[in-house]
Amino acid sequence: MNSEVISIEERAKRIKIAVFDVDGVLTNGGLMLGDDGLEYKIFHSQDGLGMKMLKNTGLRMAYITGRTSKLVLKRAENTGVDIIYQGIDDKLEALMDLVEKQGVSLDECLFMGDDVIDIPPMRRAGLAITVPHAMPLVKEYAHYTTERQAGFGAVREVCELLMKAQGTFDGQMAQYLK
């Protein structure tokens, strides 16, 4: 293993709260707007199962997103995410609020984003993750870029990375490998 991989693993071992942007991380970033004025998002089922397994390990999860959508609340309910910040212009301020309310340090937070609005919390989080299609400047501040694309298993990849680093992956997989 090279030192960067070890560094990522060490960072991942400390994480107590995984914080995800929504559009461009949990989705592919596309926004579908219907003639009826409704907004539609596509979420990946593999990401959802990964988040459920991660929650089963005791690790907390949160969404911090610039947009506001009832769909985000429904996805949070389905995946066990109980900390949600929507309509946020200053994501670092939201992360600082989350850290204070949850009684954790920034080093114990993972932040996953894809656009420049995500850079401030990524710079402060203990583990900053992005996706392959992220804006180039965002990639400069990420400790890790997923192999999977946003909206196509990138969040699942992160959930498994955390579980492996924290020694909970095998326990979560055991129910499927009977």
Rank of each mutant, 00 (worst) to 15 (best):
K91A: 08
R14G: 03
A165N: 02
L38W: 08
R124M: 13
V99I: 14
V116S: 14
E77I: 00
I117Q: 14
E140I: 01
G34W: 07
M1G: 15
P136A: 12
S45Q: 11
Y63A: 06
R11Q: 14
C109V: 14
L106N: 01
G24Q: 13
Y40V: 12
V81I: 15
L162A: 12
P120G: 05
L31D: 07
G171Y: 02
I42R: 15
G66F: 02
E4Y: 04
D170P: 00
L71G: 15
T168D: 08
M122R: 05
E93W: 06
K52L: 15
Y63L: 15
D21T: 08
Q175F: 07
K70D: 10
A165Y: 06
D115R: 02
E108D: 11
V5Y: 07
A142D: 10
Q172V: 07
I15Q: 00
N78T: 08
V72E: 04
Q86H: 07
K55G: 04
M173F: 06
K41V: 07
I42T: 13
T68P: 00
Q175C: 04
K55S: 15
G167L: 06
G30S: 14
D36R: 02
V81G: 03
T68N: 02
R124W: 05
G153E: 03
D82L: 05
R75T: 07
V72Y: 01
K16N: 07
K41H: 10
M51N: 00
E160Y: 00
A12G: 12
A134G: 04
L162S: 03
I88L: 04
D35L: 10
R67H: 12
Q166A: 14
A154H: 09
V158C: 05
D90S: 14
I88Q: 11
I64T: 08
R148Q: 13
V116T: 15
I83M: 08
G167E: 06
L161S: 11
A165I: 05
M122D: 10
E93G: 05
E9Q: 14
V158N: 00
A154N: 02
D23T: 03
G171Q: 13
E160I: 01
L38T: 12
G29F: 10
Q86R: 06
T146H: 04
M32H: 12
A134L: 11
M61D: 08
K13R: 15
D89L: 12
A18L: 05
Y176C: 02
L106A: 07
L73Q: 13
L31Q: 06
